[in-house]
Design a protein around this nucleic acid. Structure first.
Lengths: 341, 341
DNA sequence: TTTAGCACTCGATAGAGGGGAGTGCTAACA
DNA sequence: TGTTAGCACTCCCCTCTATCGAGTGCTAAA
């Protein structure tokens, strides 16, 4: 059996109606609301075929049809038309990104918020892995006899600080010396590149002053462990509570718990392919508690390289078209904004 | 009518049983499970009295009794006995606090996590207002022509950084000069005390170099706005989903939304009185969505001054005794740990 | 004052019946 | 050959009813 044009239209009608109403769709509804120019009986025949193809299913004998997972897949791959965004939505996004923002982190947070507000779904954002950014400046500021704070400025404008323990007996000059050596040797290198370099040079330079060695080692180790991870930002976590399919608390609990686990979200967002938009529907997602959900992801870029992922998480009965349009536009705006930094 | 000892025992039995089971308690249950030495009929008479006193109520004619809000209030004020904590729970708390922690923030997070895990309720923690801590060190590090990062170290060990815009044309020496002046003038003062001082001295010192002035002003303003607020930490937000009274998603939604609003939580935790433990039951709480909840709060201290609040949020049918014990112990441990810093 | 006995109330649960939305099949029609 | 009208059928959903039982309040006896 082949998917002729009318079957496609019927499938599309079923999906659009089900997305809008969350109720099984009957043949009468389709023939009336979506003017296909054929009678309900004809639609019924088509529906029987679509069911045989596995694209739609019946909750029970005397109910209408709902899209199956394969049905959504077919829709996303073949039928979905891009929804043009309203002027004012585009403006809102551009404006929010133009805000005088000084750090990547703030841009990411804005994106996450926008994405969840505009889609009414949950937004997941994987921030850039800082480990790849080159060091622009590193400074060690002593706090007291046993502590110091390391401040690292990366070339993407990101700043991190971390308090570390240092052995006693170091004076101001020692810290200045260490800072100087570290700056000289590490400038322009990304954190990922530190480990090999560090061992060769720092040891040499500072060997004359043995007591500094341990603190330097600890500093670097700390800094590395700090910077290697990329953070996750969420927006609109509670939006799923508005979906009728999640009215049962047991279904929503697992999902909310999953969203609290940063590691799980990273896992979900991380293996984003090089290509732009990806849609994972229902059980295409790894996690059990996402089997009634769909996740749309997109990657954002800096200088042509993928540096992070944006995602929209909603029910499988999701407004794919709208979500994809918004996600695409925000992703693009974010990429541009980051490039501007 | 007076509360004789037997009425108290009956009330206590009703509350304890209802807390344990979440089901209305009948006279038969009380006379059998809690050995008062009287028959169900006698208990029924007492219950009629307790209902007249407004301490218990009937969901419907042929059901058992449940505690009213006043009933819980009476229990908390007069009947509740402190539950001694298990040795291993105490150990767990002490151990977690002993962990080699360098910042107040980390201690607060640990406390929040402990509190929610041990009680199975939601933990709310109001961190100390940093504005009151004296400055130990302030440094401005230039990033590029138009940006610099300000690093502030407070005397409680807390470190904050913030990226600021600076006018062009400043060189390294300028920054060093600004840092030096600021450090000299602001050392030992809390952020709260800055505003009056700043205007008098900084202006004088730096007036000779007009172009610096604007950047300094901005710096200070930024720093102040940054430090004045005290942050809120949550733990176990989803624990309420385990409570049978919140099986309905509509009831839980408002509460979760409330917990996402930092301002609301501050408001709830802030007006903590000087005294130690406070219990707010049901509609004693301001927020509509907390009318089925109770909130137990306690303050923690540094040098005898209140610096923050810990709170446990659960259903009105809460294990008050256990929650209070755990909260007290953690609060004390936190106060001690902060003092050690 | 306490207790046993008893009628009564009312939620919870299960089953019966009607209504209705939607289907699949058949036969007629273009 | 594809499309459509007609019709019987299925099965969810809602309501109504009956039954059950936990728990009560009242009364009278101990």
């Amino acid at each position: 059996m082949k998917m002729d044009e009318r079957k496609q239209k019927v499938l599309q009608a079923i999906i659009l109606d089900y997305i809008a109403t969350a109720e099984p769709v009957g043949s009468r509804t389709i023939s009336r609301k979506y003017n296909l120019g054929v009678s309900p009986a004809t639609v019924r025949n088509e529906m029987a075929d679509l069911e045989e193809l596995g694209l739609i299913e019946q909750p029970h004998t005397s109910a209408g049809r709902i899209p199956s997972q394969s049905g959504y897949r077919y829709y996303v791959d073949c039928l979905m038309e891009k929804e043009p965004l309203d002027r004012d939505i585009k403006d809102m996004i551009s404006k929010a990104m133009m805000v005088r923002i000084r750090e990547t982190e703030a841009l990411i947070q804005v994106s996450s918020k926008l994405l969840s507000q505009l889609t009414n779904y949950t937004a997941l954002v994987l921030a850039p892995a800082l480990g790849r950014n080159a060091l622009r400046h590193l400074q060690i500021l002593p706090i007291d006899d046993s502590k110091a704070v390391v401040v690292m400025v990366l070339d993407n404008g990101h700043v991190e600080h971390k308090v570390i323990d240092v052995p006693g007996g170091l004076n101001h000059e020692d810290f200045t010396a260490i800072s100087r050596v570290l700056n000289e040797r590490l400038y322009g290198l990304s954190v990922e590149q530190w480990r090999p370099t560090i061992l060769q040079t720092i040891y040499h330079e500072l060997l004359y002053q043995k007591k500094l060695l341990n603190s330097v080692i600890e500093l670097v180790e700390n800094a590395i462990s700090l910077e290697e991870e990329n953070k996750v930002y969420l927006g609109g976590t509670l939006n799923i509570l508005n979906q009728p399919e999640f009215k049962d608390i047991e279904k929503v609990k697992g999902l909310l718990e999953l969203l609290e686990q940063e590691a799980a979200i990273k896992e979900v967002l991380h293996p984003a392919p090089e290509a732009g938009i990806t849609v994972k529907i229902g059980s295409e997602n790894i996690h059990q508690s996402m089997k009634n959900c769909s996740l749309i992801t997109a990657t954002y870029h800096l200088n042509g390289r993928v540096i992070g992922t944006l995602g929209v998480l909603g029910p499988t009965r999701m407004e794919y078209s709208k979500a994809v349009s918004i996600l695409e536009y925000i992703t693009e705006a974010l990429s541009k904004a980051i490039t501007r930094l």
